[in-house]
Design a protein around this nucleic acid. Structure first.
Lengths: 248, 248
DNA sequence: GTCTATAACCGGATAGAC
DNA sequence: GTCTATCCGGTTATAGAC
């Protein structure tokens, strides 16, 4: 969700208790915020690799060590980006979801707004993906640390389906949001590699695949498709059961 | 970390039984090979990040500078891994492809052997993927530099299909190898994240999805499925046309 | 053309003083 | 909470030996 500054020990809400504060003083939350904003700006301007921790610190007017005091590593700055990106996405597609009942158009709106809101970070996202792709990294969308954002995003897909006029067969409806989230991840993966003008290819891909997905959902209640759907659903449940040998 | 004792300068190759060869002599190719083998071994033993260029040089008994003389960067060592990995895969599945006509079993064999041959490098592959995921990286499977390996792998999928007893509808047959290559990439992506015992989940995923894919191929000639297949194929061709604004 | 040795640069990360 | 000093490893540069 929105960036919550974790360590607030002073207990003083901004502007609440102390008007007597010296002009130059900064609360911890403010410093943290300052560093984060600076980092995100530099990421946009220079890309992920082009931005150094030293650069962030210098630009924000704090020391290198101080930056590391608030963010354990360069990667941890990215978690903040995740949260913000999701918030922006949510804000951008909530209107469409309130006014639209057609499943295809709902799904289209959600996918398109995701790409639109992420656009300023296109280059950054490419390099970012580099570290996010490492399964061991807490930044992996599949990691335990990413669970909160992931749950929210999946929940959004549930809203897309449930708020639509389409009736989804019972056996499929439980799994569908997860599958749609996975689909959106795939779209993002494509987008990251998309250097076409205005990301035209990604939009084309979205238009076409949403079409196909909705058609498949409609076909899924057909007897002919039963074994196929059944097989796919069994797979997802089996994969969940074959879970990791030792708990992390 | 323990300090590595300085490289042995005595000149005696350990266990060098070669009669004529001057003890210290080594051809350029041999040195290159030595460095590469050492690197791949250390990658296996310590992972990608856990292996330092200094460590490779020390273990191979050459200087750091020499290692950089043969491999422009740490990443360039990876290209060598790609090539070798594909060769091993080819060798491992050629037998099955010669003796088996059933499409499902052919595809199964190819996917399974891919995972099996890559297994010693599981951890390495995860970290490796980190740099390969960057679209700008020459190591990306979609990059121009990776084209040769990619073409070979796609060609392998063409063999899988063409050597099978299954008749694929003409409009689909041209695109199918590309789609199957993409499918294998997805499997690998899953495998990288798979920490289940013996990668059981990956094998389960392969079994199930190959089943589904083959069933879809068989269904694809049905009139009912026509618009769906047609739509998907139009998409791939459109994506190719909307190519990059400037040639690389 | 092959190779060694060494010093240096750069940037992520940490330690410990204030 | 904030700083300075330092470590560590990828990478580059250089100078010279065979």
């Amino acid at each position: 969700m929105t960036e919550q500054p974790p360590p607030d020990k002073s207990g003083a809400e901004p502007g609440a208790a102390s008007p007597a504060k010296a002009a130059k003083a900064r609360t911890a939350a403010e410093t943290r915020q300052l560093i984060l904003e600076t980092a995100l700006r530099l990421f946009r301007e220079r890309g992920y690799e082009g931005t150094t921790m030293r650069g962030i610190a210098a630009e924000a007017g704090v020391s290198l060590g101080n930056a590391y005091y608030y963010f354990k590593s360069k990667e941890h700055l990215i978690q903040a980006y995740y949260g913000r990106s999701h918030d922006e996405h949510l804000a951008a597609c909530v209107e469409a979801l309130e006014s639209e009942r057609d499943l295809k158009r709902r799904l289209l709106a959600v996918c398109r707004t995701k790409i639109e809101t992420a656009r300023p970070y296109h280059r950054f996202a490419g390099q970012l993906f580099k570290t996010a792709a490492d399964p061991a990294s807490p930044l992996s969308p599949f990691s335990a640390e990413s669970m909160p954002v992931r749950r929210e995003a999946t929940e959004l897909m549930a809203v897309v389906v449930e708020g639509s006029a389409t009736r989804v067969p019972g056996e499929l409806s439980g799994e569908l949001p997860n599958l749609l989230w996975l689909y959106l991840m795939a779209i993002i993966l494509f987008w990251i590699h998309d250097d076409s003008l205005g990301c035209a290819r990604t939009y084309k891909l979205i238009d076409r695949t949403v079409e196909i997905i909705v058609r498949l959902i409609n076909l899924s209640s057909l007897t002919l498709m039963r074994p196929l759907v059944r097989g796919a659903l069994e797979l997802t449940s089996e994969l969940r059961q074959l879970s990791t040998p030792e708990a992390r």
